[in-house]
Structure formats: structure tokens, C-alpha cells
């Protein structure tokens, strides 16, 4: 399923503009060390973490998009970095469990 379709069906708010990639999986983590050892390319990363190191880790793995839960908002420097490396950023007021449940209901594993 494409990012745009997921965003529409789950009420995500786009933070930046990026390529509308097909999501191949989901990974939930707030730790950069965990992301680089366990996440896969083209996943949708769900996180609370808004530190720059998250983008550095996500880019290394080729993460397609990041969803910041619980209304967390990244700083402009993080948005600029995500734009530079082509990672789509989204925000939601949902907590991690609620948003992950929405993805499950869409059939995304």
C-alpha cells in the first residue's frame, strides 16, 4: 500500500513532501541502535523520538516514511534533513498502539 493511501485512511498529517513509496512493512522503535540493526528498507517507522539521530539511522536503512505519534513534532532542522534524504514525515495524535492497530485493520503487517 502506498504512503498516501495509508495517510488518507489513518488520518496522518504530512509534515513534508516526499516520494509516494509503497510501504513494505512496519517497524516500531524509539532507538537509533535498534533501527539500524532490525528495521528493513521501505518500512514505515513509528516512533516518539524526534532527535536528528533518528533520521541518520532511518536513512542508512532506507526507511520510506516516519510517523511521529502522540502529537510529537520534529524541529525544522530534522525536517530539512529528511527532505534532503527523501524520507517522508507524518504526524498523528494517536499513541503507538492506537496507530499500529489502525495499520493492522488496513491489513498491513
Amino acid at each position: 500500500m502506498k504512503i498516501s493511501e495509508i495517510a488518507k485512511k489513518t488520518g496522518l498529517k504530512a509534515i513534508n513532501e516526499s516520494e509516494d513509496k509503497v510501504i513494505e512493512g512496519v517497524y516500531i522503535s524509539d532507538m537509533a541502535s535498534d533501527i539500524i540493526t532490525n528495521a528493513k528498507a521501505n518500512v514505515l517507522l513509528i516512533t516518539l523520538q524526534t532527535h536528528k539521530t533518528l533520521i541518520a539511522a532511518a536513512n542508512l536503512i532506507d526507511v520510506a516514511a516516519i510517523v511521529f505519534v502522540k502529537g510529537k513534532k520534529p524541529g525544522n532542522d530534522i525536517i530539512e534533513l529528511a527532505n534532503k534524504v527523501g524520507i517522508a514525515l507524518f504526524g498523528t495524535e494517536d499513541d503507538t498502539w492506537t496507530f499500529a492497530s489502525k495499520l493492522t485493520r488496513l491489513g498491513i503487517q
Partner: peptide, 13 residues
């Protein structure tokens, strides 16, 4: 540069 390490974890909540 940005070192990939788990800094800022105390800021997330």
C-alpha cells in the same frame, strides 16, 4: 555529523 547513538532518549516523553 550526526552520530548514530541513542542520545536524547530522556527528551522523548
Amino acid at each position: 555529523g550526526i552520530v548514530i547513538a541513542d542520545v536524547g532518549l530522556t527528551d522523548i516523553y
